[in-house]
Design a protein around this nucleic acid. Structure first.
Ligand code: MN
Ligand code: MN
Ligand code: ZN
Ligand code: ZN
Lengths: 167, 167
DNA sequence: AGCTGATTTGCAAATGGTTTGCGTTGACTT
DNA sequence: AAGTCAACGCAAACCATTTGCAAATCAGCT
């Protein structure tokens, strides 16, 4: 196992954006810069992987706010194009901050055992989606793609029959 | 618009299996052949696209059963490998019958306007998933991939500014 | 700094899909 | 035909998410 506290892979997608830059984007769209809003953005800013509303809520230490406020803000931020929603098929929304003007489209590789997440930059081959759209007469075609499997640690644990410990 | 009542694309995936063959599979796995079970399988048998539990429930005409029974049976059938679950990101489970021994892995192209579904046989290029797994030290990697866009009819309606009528 | 009005929040209740407890029914074995 | 246990119906519970409403807060203006 190579270096660090955990073997989570941190490919920093949205390069750490200063909070000030994020609130500036709020102001541009004439949204109020409230306490909960800043706190939520600050949590997102510090996460490299998609986080659930509940996780955001838990991460709000002192400056906590109501869960409903988080749900409402994620909608607002998504409509503003500041966050992107991901679905891993468990019916729970996950969110990731989007850097200004960034092409946020990407995918993930999720360990079905320990929930470790790896950011994936690979995507469908060039033209794949376009050809598919043309073939079936569709327009504005996008896709959702997520990978699932056993991470290094979990597959080793499974093969040795060791008792799993969720990190 | 080429022939037929609707332009839904029916690429018959699970070739119409006789109900008797389906119940036989139940018997093999020593599961009781009940009324609800047969009715559910019969509904699935007649659908070419993923259906929700609610849709199955509605399709059960006279021989109706409780919604809870459908939920329980879908779990059972999934565990037996007779149905496969699909997720379109709206938090609603959708199910499709799997032919005996069939490789059920496939994807869909969904119209975000009218919910029309097209079955897609294309998949990731050979080796794509394997390479990704190797690169990140994962094993048993699978993926979920669904496409979304505007179908022919809906994109035409959108461009002409016509009032939409959901078929 | 104080006033004002629209936005945002907290709280609690409502939703909607899904799960579960429990007593009863009924499919299948003997 | 009788016994057994899976499966069912019904109602309540669960859980993520949404929503109504009154109170609090932010932003712009005097
Ligand atoms: Mn990501
Ligand atoms: Mn299908
Ligand atoms: Zn893992
Ligand atoms: Zn359509």
């Amino acid at each position: 196992m190579k270096g660090g506290c955990c073997q989570h892979q941190h490919l920093p997608r949205a390069i750490q954006q200063p909070l000030s830059e994020l609130t500036a984007r709020l102001k541009e769209k004439s949204r109020k810069i409230t306490g909960p809003r800043q706190a939520i953005l600050d949590v997102l800013r510090r996460h490299q992987h998609p986080v659930t509303n509940k996780e955001i809520h838990a991460a709000l230490a002192s400056e906590g706010c109501d869960l409903a406020t988080i749900y409402r803000n994620m909608h607002t931020l998504a409509a503003m194009g500041m966050v992107q929603r991901f679905d891993f098929g468990d019916g729970i929304a996950r969110w990731e901050l989007i850097a200004e003007g960034e092409d946020s489209h990407h995918h993930h590789l999720v360990c079905t055992q320990c929930s470790m997440i790896v950011e994936i930059e690979d995507c469908l081959p060039e033209g794949f989606e376009k050809a598919l759209a043309a073939r079936h007469g569709f327009t504005n075609v996008t896709h959702k793609l997520e990978f699932f499997g056993l991470c290094n640690r979990c597959s080793r644990a499974a093969s040795t029959g060791a008792t799993m410990t969720v990190p």
